[in-house]
Amino acid sequence: MKVKQISVFLENKSGRLAKVTRILGDNRINIRALSIADTTDYGILRLIVSEPAKALSVLKAEGFTVRETEVIAVEVPDQPGGLAGVLEEIQAKGVNIEYMYAFVGKSLENAIVIFRVEEIDQAIALLKNTQVKLLPEERVYSL
């Protein structure tokens, strides 16, 4: 149930994001979802891509500081209150969320949200048999 996210360290300099996406594009890697956390000096780019292992190696080869991070992908009912319901359940199980971001919209009946949580294995176990629907990784990469 664990999904591999590619995290890239980016300095706040013009053209860095364009460079990363160009490298991925040239290697025919498709971006499924992304988010950027930014601070004054730097940003952290988080990506869900079609081929995480390949993305990791091509970005490394281009000199980026890049890491694989384990996250979970949750199906969220695409209706008012859908995300609130999921978050309430996660909270009820005592799982701490580090950060989260939504999938780029696709014509699916449900929305997909990526969560980075503390203690991921424990979190997966806790969320089993709840209303929170986790997506298997192969499905996420190919969405």
Binding site: Y42, I44, T65, V66, R116
Partner: peptide
Amino acid sequence: VEVSEAMFASEVRKLE
């Protein structure tokens, strides 16, 4: 300081 892979994390909190 150049951020090496070993130092890097995807959470802003950890980098800070």
